[in-house]
């Protein structure tokens, strides 16, 4: 008799796993020559202005609308849409800079009533997983305790399907979802400005630090503004992940974290740990 699941580890059923990780992870190995080509990236935010020169193009997406008659209270209206606030465009441009040839998808959840925000947000993550999106940028979060379970389930589903969720932490202390879950890439702003420089924090929930202070970012009306927020740090990590995935498409979320940790500015291979 064997316990459940143990059959998966029989020599006849267990597939070989290509590790594909070098002994030493370098920037050259990780992304040299890569433009993020073909990697699908979804931005769950306020929409993306596809006509902004820093964005270039948007490959698709949907507006998640609150509809009490729809199953789960929300439905996806696929097709082009505008950016209501400017923030989604800012994130898209940051990602585009790091991964110019990535395929960008806009999932607009902001602008609807707040009551439905959590459900719309959850719908957008589900949409991304079901459409095989590899990286999802979420510069938004919820503190609502009643969404803990919903987002935990979705974060697990994303992790098991290889969809990498990149979440900005918010500024108010206390739990926010899904940014505090261990399976997501949680990001806060550090004071650097180089879009390809980031830090790894061994004491999460803020697992990665990336530029997010006083940045020139794309905004509405084909303009730019100078802005600060953790919400601008997340798309830097999203862009870097897309760039790496284009060159190493088989990487799993936990391998990607290992790669980012190894490439972090504070990574060290000798000497004392901090």
């Amino acid at each position: 008799m064997r316990p459940a699941w143990s059959w998966q580890f029989e020599a006849t059923t267990l597939p070989p796993v290509l590790v594909g990780m070098p002994a030493e992870i370098t920037r050259e190995w990780a992304w040299e020559g890569s433009s993020g080509a073909g990697v699908s990236v979804a931005v769950i935010d306020s929409g993306i202005d596809a006509s902004h020169p820093a964005v270039g193009s948007v490959d698709g997406g949907a507006v998640i609308v609150v509809d009490p008659d729809a199953p789960g209270g929300t439905r996806a209206v696929e097709g082009p849409h505008e950016d209501l606030f400017g923030h989604g465009t800012a994130c898209a441009a940051i990602i585009r800079h790091a991964a110019p040839d990535a395929r960008l998808f806009s999932l607009r959840v902001l602008g609807e009533r707040l009551t439905g925000k959590g459900a719309a947000f959850a719908h957008a993550i589900r949409w991304a997983i079901e459409h095989g999106v590899r990286v999802v940028n979420m510069s938004l979060s919820t503190s609502r305790a009643d969404y803990f379970g919903v987002f935990h389930e979705l974060a697990d589903a994303a992790y098991f399907s290889g969809t990498m969720l990149v979440c900005a932490l918010n500024n108010v202390r206390g739990p926010t979802y899904p940014s505090q879950f261990a399976s997501v890439f949680s990001v806060a702003a550090h004071s650097g400005a180089d879009p390809f420089r980031f830090d790894y924090n061994p004491k999460p929930p803020a697992e990665f630090g990336a530029p997010g202070i006083d940045l020139e970012v794309a905004w509405l009306g084909s303009k730019t503004i100078r802005a600060t927020g953790n919400s601008f740090a997340a798309p830097h990590i999203t862009g870097v992940i897309a760039r790496i995935l284009a060159k190493h498409p088989r990487l799993t979320p936990f391998q990607m974290k290992t790669v980012l940790m190894a490439l972090a500015d504070n990574a060290t291979r000798s000497g004392a740990e901090g």
Partner: peptide
């Protein structure tokens, strides 16, 4: 809407 702080 986003639950995020922002400074412009």
């Amino acid at each position: 809407m986003s639950g995020q702080a922002i400074a412009i």
